[in-house]
Design a protein around this nucleic acid. Structure first.
Length: 505
RNA sequence: GGGCCGUUAGCUCAGCCUGGUUAGAGCACCUGCCUUUUAAGCAGGGUGUCGCUGGUUCGAGUCCAGCACGGCCCA
């Protein structure tokens, strides 16, 4: 009965359900409690190759147990090959009828009731096939978990971007490149933590839910804290909390965490993203440049084994020191406009028009400078570059330059055309800070939704005295893009946010 | 928010421009053969809500409109 259904059934899912029932009828638990693995597949390959180097015949006599997901099957009459995959790689298994432990019933089970995608445990001895592939001669076969859904095609894999993101588990099963990106991401973050720790920084955790957001210019997500009967914001940055810790005497702190900005999604922006922020007392933005150079080149060396990174067809050299380019010089080079000769927004608008530049209208001189820069200079910044000397009005948390109070001690870091990071000599004058917040309030009145809100408690902290401090933040997602040569941020985020669709089938 | 493109079998894709038998291919799957294969091979089998809703038409996967989701570009 079930055999006929199996033959007739058009539904692959239903076919596998029938196999599941058949297994249960045979007294086989398709989801047993425990597995036993003596080696990973990578370890098995190493073991076999060492045996061969020592001049051993066939393979080592010891019995090994390997576990993994069946990724391919080749049945040839009374002998069959299958590849299993675990976290370390792939390995070929060989099942032959009438071999030790393989009676007709076992072989039939392998042929009829197992499918690509099933998770199995195989026990046996290692050997090389005629073609030299490391393999396991199976003497015992155990099903660890039956798979009810067919995997994507073995050759083309899963390409549909939407399905890859919505069902990342399938992407990770079949696309080795996807797996590689996320393993590399983990290595990058681990190497970064070790680097920061080695420099005497301590890792801290600050609030995700904040009564006042700050530390960046962005729109926040809002939510509601019922116990306190209060609206709260998901953090757009950790900056103001970390600097409170500097005030408190934790001289070197960093945090690697998710920040949230309620803004557009693009190939370089995800509303929920991971940032590193680091603050160092008795330091300034020059020290942050050195720290960035050291951190990037160190992590590249550890993770990639080189400081030369290939990104989207460009060869990037992360060897310190990196280029320092004042924003004014960058804009002058690319547009012919000297922003120092245009001290008001009206004059700058006039210069933009004279040069025939195509930029969106901006409410303030600072934001217009920023816009010109983004449009004409940013895409040219391929090799690592610190852009320095930012306009005061878009930098409410940075110290003024002593020789030019319209500018601040701030840099942004660009590599491969990506904006990677942002750093200041942190403003520690509480009176100046209060005035800057007031000015931001006026910009908000003038229509700038991203203006920085007033934070009285933060000003109070500064009033207790904050040492001269260098601070920096950088995007971990973009760093991973750079190190894994990905052009879309969604390729380095495991579960990028997509609009909800109907219930998955 | 705007423009362009996409959505067909479990997966990867043809078919649409120029409407017309029962919607195709490869892989996967099912049946049979095959004892070192590896994109195994040989023989047979098509398993489908052509994204959704409506319209035009004698007739729509194909043309039109709206909607949904996604991608790229712009904002």
């Amino acid at each position: 009965m079930s055999e006929e259904q199996s033959q007739d059934s058009s539904d692959l899912f239903e076919q596998r359900r029938l196999k599941l029932e058949r297994l249960r009828e045979k007294g086989i638990d398709p989801y047993p409690l425990r597995a036993e693995c003596t080696h990973s597949t990578a370890e098995a390959i190493r073991m076999l190759e060492e045996w061969k180097e020592k001049g051993g015949e066939d393979g080592p006599p010891e019995v090994v147990k390997l576990c993994g997901r069946m990724m391919s099957v080749r049945v040839m009459g009374k002998a069959s090959f299958a590849h299993i995959a675990d976290g370390s790689g792939r390995f070929q298994t060989y099942v032959r009828l009438a071999d030790e432990g393989v009676d007709a019933e076992t072989y039939e089970l392998f042929k009829r009731d197992l499918d690509i995608g099933d998770i199995i445990q195989v026990e046996g001895t290692l050997f090389f096939t005629r073609t030299g592939e490391p393999s396991l001669r199976v003497t015992k076969l155990t099903l660890l978990a039956k798979s009810l859904r067919p995997l994507p095609e073995k050759w083309h894999g899963l390409k549909d971007v939407e399905t890859r993101y919505r069902q990342r588990y399938v992407d990770l099963i079949v696309n080795e490149d996807a797996r590689r990106v996320f393993v590399t991401r983990s290595h990058i973050v681990a190497a970064l933590r070790r680097f920061m720790d080695s420099r005497g920084f301590i890792e801290v955790e600050t609030p995700v839910l904040q009564p006042i957001y700050g530390g960046a210019m962005a729109r926040p997500f809002t939510t509601y804290y019922h116990a306190l009967d209060q609206e709260v914001f998901l953090r757009i940055a950790d900056e103001l909390y970390l600097k409170r810790l500097i005030v408190g005497g934790l001289d070197r702190v960093y945090e690697i965490c998710k920040d949230f900005r309620n803004e557009g999604v693009s190939s370089h922006h995800n509303p929920e993203f991971t940032q590193l922020e680091v603050y160092q007392a008795y330091a300034d933005y020059h020290d942050m440049m050195s720290l960035a150079e050291d951190a990037f080149s160190h992590v590249a060396e550890v993770v990639l084994g080189t400081v030369r990174v290939s990104y989207q067809g460009h060869e990037l050299d992360l060897t310190p020191p990196w280029r320092r380019l004042p924003m004014r010089d960058g804009i002058l080079e690319e547009t012919g406009i000297d922003i120092y000769q245009a001290p008001t927004v009206e004059l700058l608008r006039q210069r933009v028009e004279d040069q025939g530049l195509d930029v969106d209208p901006q409410p303030t001189r600072g934001s217009l400078v920023d816009e010109i820069f983004s449009e004409y200079v940013e895409p040219k910044l391929i090799q690592p570059t610190f852009i320095t000397d930012f306009p005061l009005e878009i930098s409410p948390l940075a110290k003024k330059k002593p020789d030019n109070p319209d500018l601040v001690e701030r840099f942004e870091l660009f590599i491969g055309g990506l904006e990677l990071g942002n750093a200041f000599s942190e403003l520690n004058d509480p009176v100046d800070q209060r005035e800057r917040f007031m000015e931001q309030g006026r910009q908000r009145e003038a229509g700038d939704d991203e203006a920085h809100p007033m934070d009285e408690d933060y000003v109070r902290a500064l009033e207790f005295g904050m040492p001269p401090t260098g601070g920096m933040g950088w995007g971990i997602d973009r760093m991973v893009m750079l190190f894994t040569d990905q052009s879309s941020i969604r390729e380095v985020i495991l579960f990028p946010h997509l609009r909800t669709k109907g219930a998955p089938s």
